[in-house]
Design a protein around this nucleic acid. Structure first.
Lengths: 265, 265
DNA sequence: GTCTATACCCCGATAGAC
DNA sequence: GTCTATCGGGGTATAGAC
């Protein structure tokens, strides 16, 4: 009996997955605004009314796709963070070695035995996460457009999407917090009028982070997605050629604006 | 006879404008993907087939809307640039006076008679243009989504859109070129692997600008729209409260990354 | 340049048999 | 859970009369 329920539930899960997979294909072909239960059913050899046993409305299917997309890019970001943190220190946490790097002094004067990692680790983690987001976007441009592009007209995201939606941002916050705890971060002061907002941001997102860092982190977060969106949505066509290198450099400079240090100095 | 042709052409222009206006309303209500000639005609009290005398297809109407939108935001940016440049010097080129600004030294030591403007003018121009873009986006969110959001599925922008599409970018380039010619801009060197791309960008976009400035300019351009997109598309909901102040500060810091100087130092 | 009519498609959602 | 059938919409685009 419970075996039957188990089998039924397994079948249900499989069909649900098949529906979402087909819906993702249609997302690519027609866009979120035209996502249609009927077309999904047709392609699956079902009849449209059968889909209503799995998703009570078109919008619920859309919500499922949105949650999946946020979870997918969030998982990619978190995985890149874990990997970069595990790989450890300065050398090649980012795949390509810094071609013309150590051009002044040895990395840092006070290199103790093991724990105090070189200052560049956190910057490398940031770049790794940024590149993971970009790679995910290049691999799933239509899902990227679904979550970071124009809102779908007539659709309002339910509460269920906000948790998954925050995973990338939380990963970036974690990196800056780690850097702050490991070595402190120092940033130029903010203009006075931004102080209240910055203090609120710090209190909400990362208590313990200096307000200047919290505010710049939020800005860098949105700017990172600006780089990705311009590439994915075609604004870099006929402008930027070597987009991988361009992005990596811009992401690294963004990391510096939130107080992460590179090797030199 | 030519008077008749004149009258006819005038009527044609008026009807064309009415069609586009109604189409823009529908853009807001339904999104670009669902823009429909029939609905536009219905709302205008015409019959759908009559519209085909004005726009040979739905995509041509869409193209007209896209070109108009690019021209509209481009005009806003250019106007802000002209105004900021005419208003002139440091004080209040940006509307709100820098509340807690000149906190160290007098603006600059070597203030000659008139021509050598204080270093902050170019930064103020940059911020003015950035704010103009943001203001336009807030006033026309659906047109913003049309040109800077997800591409419309099944639609490929014709060549006619690329000129209008470049106006904002060209305005930003002009500001940096002006700054470079007025006082030179100095930026940290780029990572070696980005050199070829940066040199190509400089040659294509602004001969005479240092490659490091050209590359960082393109990055700042996309990052600026990252800030705007996150606000317009709702990613700042429940995160950033005082978006005007937040944006102004972030835009000013972006200006610094392309070598524009503020007052202090 | 506008009209009617038409060909030929699409959709979300529900009712009720099996 | 899947089916047929149905309600009540929607769309692009063209032909041909006026």
């Amino acid at each position: 009996m419970s075996a039957i329920r188990g089998a039924r539930e397994r079948a249900r899960i499989e069909v649900t997955a098949a529906i979402k997979d087909e819906a993702r294909k249609q997302l690519a072909a027609e866009g979120a605004a035209k996502l249609s239960l009927r077309a999904v059913a047709r392609e699956l050899g079902m009849v449209s009314s059968a889909l209503y046993r799995y998703f009570p409305s078109r919008d619920e299917l859309l919500t499922a796709l949105i949650v999946d997309a946020y979870d997918s890019v969030g998982e990619a970001a978190e995985h890149a963070h874990r990997t970069a943190a595990a790989e450890g220190d300065g050398r090649a946490a980012a795949p390509r070695p810094p071609t013309a790097s150590a051009r002044t002094a040895p990395p840092t004067a006070s290199a103790r035995t093991a724990p105090p990692a070189p200052p560049a680790v956190h910057l490398n983690r940031w770049v790794a996460v940024a590149c993971a987001v970009r790679d995910w976007a290049l691999a799933h441009p239509h899902e990227y457009a679904l979550i970071y592009g124009s809102p779908v007209p007539g659709y309002t995201a339910p509460q269920a999407t906000v948790g998954p939606a925050s995973r990338v941002g939380l990963t970036l916050i974690a990196i800056v917090v780690e850097a702050h705890e490991a070595q402190g971060i120092a940033l130029p002061p903010l203009a006075g009028e931004l102080r209240p907002e910055a203090e609120r941001l710090a209190a909400d997102l990362a208590p313990g982070l200096p307000p200047a860092a919290a505010a710049r982190l939020v800005a860098a977060w949105s700017q990172l997605f600006g780089l990705v969106s311009f590439e994915i949505f075609g604004q870099f066509n006929r402008v930027v050629e070597d987009r991988e290198v361009f992005f990596r450099q811009a992401a690294a400079e963004l990391a510096r604006t939130v107080g992460l240090l590179d090797g030199h100095r």
